[in-house]
Amino acid sequence: MDRYQTLFARLDDSNEGAFVPFVMIGDPDLETSEAIIRRLIESGADALELGIPYSDPIADGPTIQAASIRALSNKVTPDACLQLLKRIRADYPDVPVGLLLYSNLVMVKGIDAFYVQAKDAGVDSILVADIPLREAKPFLSAATQTGINQILIAPPNATEEILAQIGEHSSGYTYLLGRAGVTGAETAADIPAADLIERLQQVQCAPPLLGFGISTPQQVKTAIEAGAAGAISGSATVNIIAANLDDKETMLKQLDEFVRAMKAATQKG
């Protein structure tokens, strides 16, 4: 069993859903970012979804764009991000770690080479925001060869054809989009997405985690009640970092409180 399978089995046994925070690696700088990621795990995050900063993030709203810009202005490189993950993996051998990034960061190194490097850093899954199923073949093949889970996105407008392909190729988890648009806490997710979740279960996809527009414990609770295996919260998490750039202690304390509150909402009935 890989780390995601182990996690979902454990959560099933204890009748919980998963809470997965997202942050940008290197936001606002590598040192603070490492402290943030460690704190998220210590506070009870079930898994992590982590971004690599990119200059042109077309699927992201203003909050996560700003996180990228902070990291890039501190000269954070993809190599430095993966080295940071190696240190995290050494201390936390069990927590599933997913990468969320854009295709050009992968292409520039060569798809296979990038996946090998990610595997070596202890990465469990990769989601490439601008790779739709139609362009996914070489990515899926690199994922299979290295034993990384390629995360596929199920959008609210998914056709039967897309759902069938997700059923065939998904592993790790399925990223269920709570709504159209880009990332951001400004527009709330459209929950329950019960209908889409049911269609996904019919094609036997990997467990769906609901993301995009998730910022409150109530939304986490509702997502899990609708059948999601858990929820991902990015912009709300990053907002806490952005609001406390001058005060690291308060930042970490607020992140801790946020993760605990969101995690508490994953307990079923």
Partner: peptide
């Protein structure tokens, strides 16, 4: 959708429809 190796549809799944 391609000209040799160039072109394609490298966009989020959401935009494909």
């Amino acid at each position: 959708s391609k000209f040799g190796e160039f072109g394609g549809m490298y966009v989020p799944e959401l935009l494909i429809p």
